[in-house]
Design a protein around this nucleic acid. Structure first.
Lengths: 218, 218
DNA sequence: ACAAAATTTTACCATATGGTCAAACTTTAC
DNA sequence: GTAAAGTTTGACCATATGGTAAAATTTTGT
């Protein structure tokens, strides 16, 4: 089949065929799912192909039949992740009420942290290492932030919310919401809630609502 | 000399001598400084002894003369770090004014992020991997947080500040302040400030002052 | 059913890495 | 100055790891 992506190779000895087979789709998913798990737990360098293969229940060479390198798997995961990750920011609507738009944004980001903690950690790992693989994508983020910051500045100009630095507002929201996924190990110990700890996100939502509503209302 | 710590060995073939030599102190410092740099940049598993030795300007076996294993270096760094790291929290004073105590806490944490970004990243890396090496220390943190949370609850009972969940208050402060060190790569791109970007921390301090003063005042 | 294409496996390889050993060299205490 | 203690080095080793080659097996289209 030889798929279009340069990082994904399959049937390396076959001529160019356009579409991906059933097995290919299934196995690629399987591998990505396993890799997400492993990368999120050990970071890129801390993860081995063998680990990922084992988690996926296939052999290493078989894994390497679908993804040419460890980097290729990582890249694919990061690419996917960023789409999901930026969605809540894209949704912010200039026409809406500032405070409730921001409230909703925080809620959505908190839900992502709750529902996709592995993705959050994958991202955190990447940024911590200096974001070596996603400089381009980060520039898209910059543009998006620029655009949404303009909206916030407008809201401030119209006296619909308290004056503040929009970018630092975003930083604070990212930091806190992702903290619940990334620093989970610390939070668990401090809260002393063993096992479940579902209430965590409810409590966090309440706290953040209060902080930001009072903090940003005109 | 065979020092007390089980992880640090020097002069392995000599009998027990109590005090550390000049060279030993110097070299250990040199190694720890180099290791902090390397670990903060690549994480524990991403760092190699050779890298650390090169950064320190000594040979690998020489490094291993001072620290028996890579883990031993890491352990020592984490131990040191936690002391510095928790100091601002310890300082919070039940007798002070709630809002200014919290303001000061945020300032101090922000200063740590600015002045010790490598330590912050070392810590973040450790927690991200599930805090495998610092479960005990995390329990000390839990006790400290419990103690300081009681102070906050008192303040709230005395109507000196708005009601809120003290632990989530701490989480938010940790998250945001450390974010400036840990997510530096992202922040740089989003702010578009190449090179310096000193103003960053000033802007952050202003933003956070506003957010928390308005968010927590009665 | 059968050939072509796709998939999987077995056996490898080169390099990187954590760590050891014993000999050579330096520093310190007298 | 000298001997003991402490330090440094070069040569090594075992294992882990990313990745490859080619043969064997399975799937697919007809």
């Amino acid at each position: 089949m030889s798929p279009p992506s340069s990082d994904v190779r399959a049937a390396p000895r076959s001529a160019a065929t356009r579409k991906r087979t059933r097995i290919q789709k299934e196995k690629e998913e399987l591998i990505l799912e396993a890799a997400l798990d492993v990368f999120a737990r050990h970071g890129f360098r801390g993860s081995t192909i063998d680990q990922i293969a084992e988690q996926a229940g296939i052999s290493k060479p078989n894994l390497l039949y679908y993804f040419r390198t460890k980097e290729a798997i990582h890249r694919k995961l990061i690419d996917r992740l960023l789409d999901t990750w930026l969605e809540p920011l894209r949704i912010i609507d200039a026409g809406g009420d500032p405070i409730s738009e921001i409230q909703s944004y925080i809620r959505r980001k908190l839900e992502l942290a709750r529902d996709y903690p592995r993705e959050s950690r994958l991202f955190a790992n990447e940024i911590l290492q200096g974001a070596p693989h996603i400089q381009e994508e980060l520039h898209d983020l910059r543009d998006l932030v620029e655009e949404k910051s303009a909206i916030i500045r407008d809201w401030i100009r119209q006296e619909k919310m308290a004056a503040c630095d929009p970018k630092h507002l975003f930083f604070s929201i990212w930091a806190i919401t992702q903290h619940y996924a990334d620093f989970d190990a610390q939070i668990r110990v401090v809260l002393g809630t063993p096992g479940e700890g579902e209430g965590r996100f409810e409590d966090a939502a309440r706290f953040l609502d209060q902080l930001y509503v009072n903090g940003l209302s005109k």
